[in-house]
Computed example of a mutant assay.
Amino acid sequence: MARIDIANATGMSPATVTSITAELIATGLIEEVQRDADTGQSKRGRPRVDLKLRGESHVVAGMKLTGRSISAVVLNLEGKQLGKAQLPMPRPPIDRDALCRIIPEVIEKVSASAGMKPEDLSAVGIGLPGTIQATEGFVDWCPLFKDQEFNLKHLMEEILPMPVFVENDANSVAIAELWFGFGRDVPDFLVVTIEQGVGLGIVLNGQVFRGTQGFGAEFGHTKVQSEGALCRCGQRGCLEAYVADYALLREANLFKHWEDGTTEEEKLIQLFAASKAGDQMARSIFDRASRMFSMGLANLVNLFDPAMVILSGEQMQFDYLYAQHVFEMVRSSTIQKGHHEPEIRIHKWGDMMWAKGAAAYALEEVVRLAIDQMGNSETAT
């Protein structure tokens, strides 16, 4: 994009744009590139100069932690993926010692996949389930860890040679949607993630909303049944306790026998197949989950009036959460009847795309730090 186009888009004066972009070039965040002449145009005169992000100025790793695996990617500042890796996760809950072993191992492996060393990375972004104070990197509660209420950012920065940024995994998906997905042209949208738990990412005016303490939007722990089913957070009646995969299997274990060695993923597939085949007990589990989920979605629509709701996660392979009757239950329970309804979209992202969201968050933070340093040097002079 040329300087004059930036001035026209922002309303700044050309002189101000020139001054700011000169500082950004000096910082290494952007660079000049010559624009190829359009077909049919004369190549006489001075070539037009555009500005673009300087991709190699910052390269970061992002990772997503689940109960089964850790997925990681390497991105440059332009969002180009340079490498990826995946390692098995030790069986949760894990202690801090195990965490301090596995995270550096993942960084080593994903850096090598990009032909780099860990020291070449500007930062690392970590996305994980639970209540996370992103600004501080503080883990208030995470189902993957034995220890709770500790600063994961500080812990990792004691053993890693780069800044570390920690984010709730649902917010990581929201950032990924904002950078790479359906949210690129939508200023206000919600991302609902359904996997081992239920998460929510809220984007308002192009920014992720995290709440006062940094761990807002705990959609999975909103209450849908007074004194209801036990949730893994320790409370009762949470939406997650009816919709998440562990909740479905907890109910199924009461009446279904599994062969030895059957994984949780295989159990879910078998349970869903039994429901489709007419098994009444299996069907009742999914029917209840659908009702609870539609109630939760309707509440979100009534609260936020979003332009779009994006449903994402492993559970999107099972249509009980996005079947037509679920959307009809949502419509019947919202005040938007007769008005413009939010678009509901399904995005069956794999773990690597969640990791890209964590990497994008790390990129946002390293750019913020670079600009802060630029402002501090101006103040000093």
Rank of each mutant, 00 (worst) to 15 (best):
V74K: 05
A72Y: 02
L77Y: 08
L77C: 07
V124K: 09
V106M: 09
E108G: 12
E105S: 14
E105G: 08
G127W: 09
D95Y: 04
I70S: 00
S111G: 01
A72K: 02
Q81N: 08
E119K: 15
I107M: 06
K80A: 14
I107W: 03
A85W: 05
G115E: 08
E105V: 02
K84C: 08
V74E: 01
G115Q: 02
D120W: 12
S122P: 10
V110N: 03
G79N: 01
L128Y: 13
V106T: 07
K80N: 12
L87I: 12
R96Y: 02
L87R: 09
I94A: 07
A112H: 11
K80D: 11
L75I: 06
D95M: 06
M89T: 00
E108W: 08
G125V: 10
M89L: 07
E119V: 15
P92Y: 05
S111V: 04
P88F: 06
G115Y: 11
E105N: 10
I94Q: 00
G127S: 14
A112E: 12
P90A: 04
L87D: 04
G127E: 11
A114L: 03
I94C: 00
G125Q: 13
E108C: 11
P93E: 07
K84Q: 14
I107E: 00
D97R: 12
E119D: 15
G115P: 03
N76K: 07
A85D: 01
E78N: 13
D120G: 11
V74A: 00
P90E: 02
K117G: 13
D95V: 04
K80L: 13
L121R: 10
S122Q: 10
R101M: 09
R101P: 03
D95F: 05
I70W: 04
Q81F: 07
G127T: 11
R91Q: 15
P90D: 07
L99S: 03
G127F: 08
D95T: 05
Q81D: 07
P104C: 02
S111H: 07
E119R: 15
P93W: 05
A72P: 07
Q86K: 12
P92L: 03
L121V: 13
L77P: 05
I94L: 00
S122K: 12
K84A: 11
Q86A: 08
I126L: 15
V124Q: 09
L82T: 04
G83W: 06
P129Q: 13
S111R: 00
I103T: 03
K109G: 00
M89S: 02
L121Q: 08
A98T: 15
I107V: 15
I107F: 03
L99V: 02
L87M: 10
A123Y: 10
R96G: 07
D120Q: 14
P93Q: 02
M116Q: 12
D120T: 13
I102Y: 07
P90V: 08
E105K: 12
V124F: 13
A98Y: 09
V73S: 05
I70E: 01
A123G: 11
Q81V: 09
S71G: 12
A112L: 13
A85P: 01
A114H: 04
L121S: 11
